[in-house]
């Protein structure tokens, strides 16, 4: 039996500038389902943070609230208008959905160009689209249609679209959940590479302990019904990380600690699974 103990040391990464902060955020839906309750979360500039929790813990809802796609019923979302590079566009958000969410009638290039088109930024669009496609390794597929791509390539196109604007906050909602393990590992590596080279802030929602440990600097473990932060753990392993980290004893140790925290979070409030 695991000893559940909420006094797990909180991460040491609370330094630097927060980009966005959730303060006492609650969300209930019309059918009386309370998705989130008093959720407090700071997202620090430049960090890679994962929201980890069982399905139905409201982690996707939290992400949608950050994105502005959903309004909190209580509490508020504070955007920190920082100085410097982010001052002008603190809210430039890229969002990667669980599904690739590409327009099937448009080519990959047209899909990636969409955010620029909607913003009326046509001037240097082709160059930026090319650059974004090159970053995710899809240069040769600009004129392909989404249905001609594999699942992993569609997800790459979706990431390219999220990166084509000058995004400083990248929100990802279980983007690799539907992919096979090999593709998933490769995309994990590529995502880390992009994060290291581009310096974006990433909020990554997942229900996979292994994925969250591999990717994140900080893991926020959430409870279910109502969804709130149970604890957070920092993963201090240095970047860049690669296959050696995935097979190291450190990695296994982190995974065990995070798994225990997740087990406690899942057991904590509501024993009987009531579906999602």
């Amino acid at each position: 039996m695991i000893r559940c103990d909420r006094n797990v040391p909180v991460g040491s990464s609370k330094s630097g500038t927060p980009v966005v902060a959730l303060r006492g955020v609650g969300k209930s839906f019309a059918n009386d389902v309370v998705a989130l309750e008093r959720l407090d979360l700071d997202v620090w500039s430049g960090e890679f943070v994962s929201l980890l929790g069982p399905s139905g813990c409201g982690k996707s809802t939290a992400l949608r609230i950050i994105a502005g796609l959903s309004e909190p019923t209580r509490g508020k979302v504070e955007w920190v208008e920082a100085q410097g590079a982010y001052a002008a566009g603190a809210r430039r958000i890229g969002f990667v959905f669980q599904e690739p969410t590409l327009m099937p009638w448009a080519t990959v290039a047209a899909n990636v160009r969409l955010p620029l088109k909607l913003a009326g930024l046509a001037a240097d669009a082709p160059a930026r689209v090319d650059a974004a496609l090159a970053r995710v390794g899809l240069s040769g597929f600009a004129q392909s249609y989404p249905r001609e791509l594999s699942g992993g390539m569609k997800m790459r196109a979706s990431i390219a679209r999220a990166l084509v604007t000058e995004t400083n906050l990248l929100l990802m909602d279980e983007p690799f959940a539907a992919l096979d393990e090999i593709t998933r590992f490769r995309l994990n590596n590529d995502l880390l590479g992009l994060w290291e080279s581009l310096g974006k802030t990433v909020v990554f929602v997942t229900h996979s302990v292994f994925e969250s440990v591999y990717l994140s600097q900080r893991i926020v473990v959430m409870t279910r019904r109502p969804g709130r932060v149970f604890t957070e753990l920092s993963i201090d392993a240095p970047h860049p990380r690669d296959e050696r980290f995935r097979t190291s004893a450190d990695y296994a140790g982190y995974c065990r600690r995070v798994s225990e925290a997740l087990a406690c979070a899942s057991a904590g409030t509501d024993e009987a699974p009531t579906g999602s």
Partner: peptide, 26 residues
């Protein structure tokens, strides 16, 4: 696709853009 509708909202699409670039093609 509801996710595409969300995506258009996220990027601040106008009603006109939603109609001509999303709904009619779909």
């Amino acid at each position: 696709d509801h996710n595409l509708v969300d995506l258009f909202r996220l990027y601040g699409a106008t009603r006109r853009q939603v109609l001509f670039d999303l709904k009619l093609p779909a």
